[in-house]
Amino acid sequence: MISRFSAEIATATLTAGLGLAAVVGALEFGIGWGDAGPEPGAFPFYIGLLVVAASLVNLVQATVGREGLRSTFLDHEQAKRVASFFIPMVVFVIVARLLGLYVASALYLTFVMWFQGGYRILVSAASGVAAAVAFYFVLEYAFQVPILKGPLEAALGLY
């Protein structure tokens, strides 16, 4: 179980880190006055500082008001549901990079329908392939927008 307090702290730390990254990154490009007015780093530098400062206030607020943040951010049941949705999605992105978006879409839909929806594997696979084919025609023909393809499309000569 994750408490709201730890989630607040983690997020504020993360945003402070991103702000700091902007500050550090901006320093490289100069934050002072150049030939053409303020140097490229100036604006991101001060924005970064602002983010860091506001994140620190959020950290302080969360710490001071710790009592009020005892509530649950994510309980065991919710965490399981989020994970069961999130992990296949990450795998989908990895597979999409390797095999292309169409194949990944077909596999992903098949898996979720079969594994989480409780459909028979044949029904799931048919739906997955049908969805991928439908996306193919809508995107490549109707809108003429090519999207990421992999070895399967290459083997079929679909370019």
Binding site: T15, G19, F43, P44, G48, L50, S55
Partner: peptide, 14 residues
């Protein structure tokens, strides 16, 4: 919270 708004906005600018 105004500070959360500032964080969100600042990240957008960054």
């Amino acid at each position: 919270s105004p500070f959360k708004t500032i964080v969100s906005m600042g990240l957008g600018f960054a």
